[in-house]
Amino acid sequence: MAIQLSKGQRIDLTKSNPDLTRAIIGLGWDTNKYSGGEAFDLDASAFLTGSDGRCTEDLDFVFYNNLEHPSKSVIHSGDNRTGEGAGDDEQLIVDFSKIPSTIDKIAITVTIHDAERRNQNFGQVSNAFVRLESADTNEELLRFDLGEDFSIETAVVFCELYRHGQDWKFSAVGSGFSGGLSALCKNFGLEV
């Protein structure tokens, strides 16, 4: 049975699960019904950073236009433009054995595409979650339900995977940003 995390909790991944080499990070959400006239398009991304919390190059940003890190350590499953249906809306596959030694953290984020023009924000998103399962056994190891803590934010850091010595840990972050993908890129050291 998966461990249910609360905002701010951290948990060991690879020390407690020594056979865990590949993980599927599943992200999901529902959008509230409102008469804004435009469909929602939420997008998952991963920022691979050094110890300073910044990406060293554009290719350290894995998203719908760059589906694979050059090391093949993080692979995006592809853009789901509707988010309809149950289960994961988008997935990222992380291979811990392929993460370059220069990468100390992987921030998993979700943004609302074109949110400002469409007048959309995370206050209109419900049932958002991130879960991690073993890619080899399909066993769900942990889950973090974000709750309804957001109002004007257009981007959210759902969680972080971070290096601790030789092991990897998971942090349930749930931190919102205004300014969408552009604000996140700047936060992680990328030029927009």
Results as ranks from 00 to 15, higher is better:
A2P: 10
Q4G: 06
Q4I: 14
S6F: 08
K7R: 15
G8Y: 03
L13Q: 01
K15M: 04
S16E: 14
N17P: 08
P18F: 00
P18M: 06
D19S: 12
L20R: 00
L20A: 09
T21E: 15
I25F: 02
L27P: 00
G28R: 07
W29H: 06
T31C: 14
T31I: 12
T31L: 04
K33C: 10
Y34I: 04
S35I: 07
E38V: 09
A39L: 06
A44V: 15
A44G: 14
G50S: 14
D52S: 13
E57C: 13
D58H: 10
V62K: 13
V62F: 08
F63M: 12
L67H: 08
P70M: 01
I75H: 13
I75R: 14
S77V: 05
S77M: 13
R81P: 04
R81I: 12
T82Y: 00
G83A: 02
G83F: 01
E84V: 03
G85R: 07
A86R: 09
D89Y: 05
D89H: 09
E90S: 11
E90M: 13
I93G: 00
V94S: 05
D95W: 14
K98R: 15
K98T: 01
I99E: 12
I99D: 09
I99C: 09
I99Y: 10
P100D: 14
I103F: 06
D104N: 10
D104C: 03
K105A: 09
I106Q: 12
I106W: 13
T111K: 01
H113E: 04
H113M: 01
E116I: 00
E116R: 12
R117S: 13
R117V: 06
N121F: 00
G123T: 02
N127D: 10
A128Y: 05
A128D: 04
V130N: 07
R131L: 03
L132Q: 02
L132C: 13
E133T: 10
A135R: 03
A135P: 11
A135T: 01
E140I: 13
L141S: 01
L141F: 03
L142P: 01
R143N: 11
R143L: 15
F144H: 12
D145S: 08
L146N: 05
L146T: 03
G147N: 07
G147E: 12
F150A: 08
S151M: 11
I152Q: 05
I152M: 02
I152P: 03
A155L: 05
F158V: 00
C159V: 00
C159K: 01
E160V: 02
D167W: 06
K169A: 13
A183W: 08
C185G: 02
N187C: 14
F188T: 00
G189D: 14
L190I: 06
